[in-house]
Amino acid sequence: MAGGWGSVVVLLQQVLTGLATGAVYSLLALALVVIHQTTHHLNLAQGEMATLSTLTAWQLLSWGVPYWAAFAVTLALSFAGGAAIQRLVMHPLRGGNALVQFAAMIALFLLVNSVTNAIWGPNARAFPSILPARPLFEGAPISGQRVGIILVGGALVVVLYLFLRRSRLGLNLRATAANPVPARLAGIAVDRMRMIGWGIAATIGAAAGMLLAPIVTLDPQMMFNVLPFAFAATIVGGVSSPLGAVVGGLVIGVVEALVTIYAPALGRELKLSLLFVAILAILLVRPEGLFVRRTGARL
């Protein structure tokens, strides 16, 4: 039977596996936070858009485009697509209330999902990974591809975080969401910021999809299954905190991996139910998220 060391290795293995999945959750959660920060919307279609991007990348690869070229082209296409959706779908509905905006995202969700299904069909496909699937080195507790996910995902998270917090464009994006009227008065091109916000979110989603695809099944449902976890990550981390989303995603990835190994029946059959109960518990106990410092006065 597994002795002391054996179980420690299993634990370590699961934590690392969880960190890799968690990195993907973090990325998608970050995409949600970015859209929220630029438009005060929560994009229900975020996952579907990411799936579309990933399948686009798969198509490029199957046409023989080298991996990194396909990666880059997909990111560029996704940015353009996200911006186009904002301009063509959300912008004409800007006069509507929150209800209309939400219904529009539902429509987007159905549209993108349906188009993806129509083009690529329901079958699963294999997506290559950046690093090989075999262990990193002899006896290593983690595969190369998961290391790749953590590294690339981590790098993207850092870049995005710095972009949002430090760059002028990031500041303008945040100002647009916080209060569009003074932002416009201050000379910020609010409409363009919203397009850029959607473009960036679509790009992040695409990156998350391409990183995730090798370790799950790539089919039109792929990101739909991931979106609840990314959403949970934003709740855990606090809905308006990019850093919180990242930490939240990692936490959820690790917890999920641990539940899968230590309570397999629960993890397989009631994963979403557990996730929901956890979210509810967090909302009731610490609604501002686990990693956002409580602020004193409000109003």
């Binding site: 529009a104 539902i106 429509a107 987007l108 159905l110 549209l111 349906s114 188009v115 299904n117």
Partner: peptide, 9 residues
Amino acid sequence: WAVYGGALL
């Protein structure tokens, strides 16, 4: 579903 979504929009 795309038709449905489009009609909704």
